[in-house]
Amino acid sequence: MSRILVIDDAATVRQYHRGTLESAGYTVDEAMNGLEAIEKVLQSPYDLYLVDVNMPKMDGYSFVRQLRGMQVHQAPAIMVSTESEAHDQTMAYQAGANLYLCKPAKPQALLGYVAMLLGRKTP
């Protein structure tokens, strides 16, 4: 089963995404910021990353940039943010994100994108 790391400083957002993803059969782990996420990636890389943009210690853009420079399995990264300006999306793609979604991500849409990026049938 695919392993997904949800990275967000808000516990309620992590729980929301965890519930949505686990209901579709994914194994989910959580990190509170990019720095904690890097530590988890070094222990065991994931199949997909769901990344908030604005976080303390290491923001989402920095996490994805660092991830892309690491010698680990390069899994898809979905950036999820309240920031909806075009330059925010551009920055996410320049950092190495595969997709940019605005919060709150609707469960069915999120699951569809996750399935697509993982090469699975839509749940």
Rank of each mutant, 00 (worst) to 15 (best):
S2I: 07
S2C: 07
R3K: 13
L5D: 01
L5G: 02
L5Q: 05
V6L: 04
I7Q: 01
I7C: 00
I7H: 00
D9A: 02
A10E: 14
A11D: 14
A11E: 11
T12A: 15
V13G: 00
R14C: 15
Y16W: 07
R18H: 13
G19T: 14
L21C: 06
E22M: 12
S23N: 10
G25F: 01
Y26G: 04
Y26K: 10
Y26H: 12
T27L: 13
V28T: 15
V28I: 06
D29P: 05
A31L: 05
A31T: 03
M32W: 08
N33V: 00
N33K: 07
G34S: 09
L35P: 00
A37Q: 02
I38E: 14
E39D: 12
K40S: 11
L42Q: 15
Q43T: 08
P45W: 05
Y46A: 10
L48Y: 15
L48P: 14
Y49M: 10
Y49L: 15
L50S: 13
L50R: 03
V51K: 06
V51C: 09
V51M: 08
V51P: 01
D52T: 12
D52N: 14
N54H: 05
N54P: 00
N54T: 02
M55Y: 09
M55F: 08
M55E: 03
M55S: 13
P56D: 02
K57F: 08
K57P: 00
M58T: 05
M58I: 06
Y61M: 02
Y61G: 01
S62L: 02
Q66F: 01
L67F: 15
M70R: 01
M70T: 05
M70H: 04
H73Y: 13
Q74R: 11
A75I: 06
P76S: 13
V80M: 11
V80L: 14
V80T: 09
S81E: 04
S81Q: 06
T82K: 01
E83M: 11
S84D: 11
E85A: 14
D88M: 12
M91C: 11
M91L: 12
A92Q: 03
Y93E: 10
Q94S: 15
A95P: 04
A95N: 06
A95M: 04
A97D: 07
N98A: 09
Y100A: 10
L101C: 13
C102V: 14
C102K: 07
K103P: 07
K103D: 02
P104E: 10
A105P: 05
K106Q: 14
Q108T: 12
A109N: 09
L110P: 08
L110V: 03
L110W: 09
L110S: 03
G112F: 05
V114I: 07
A115N: 02
A115F: 00
M116I: 07
L117A: 08
G119S: 11
T122K: 11
T122G: 06
T122F: 05
T122L: 02
P123V: 11
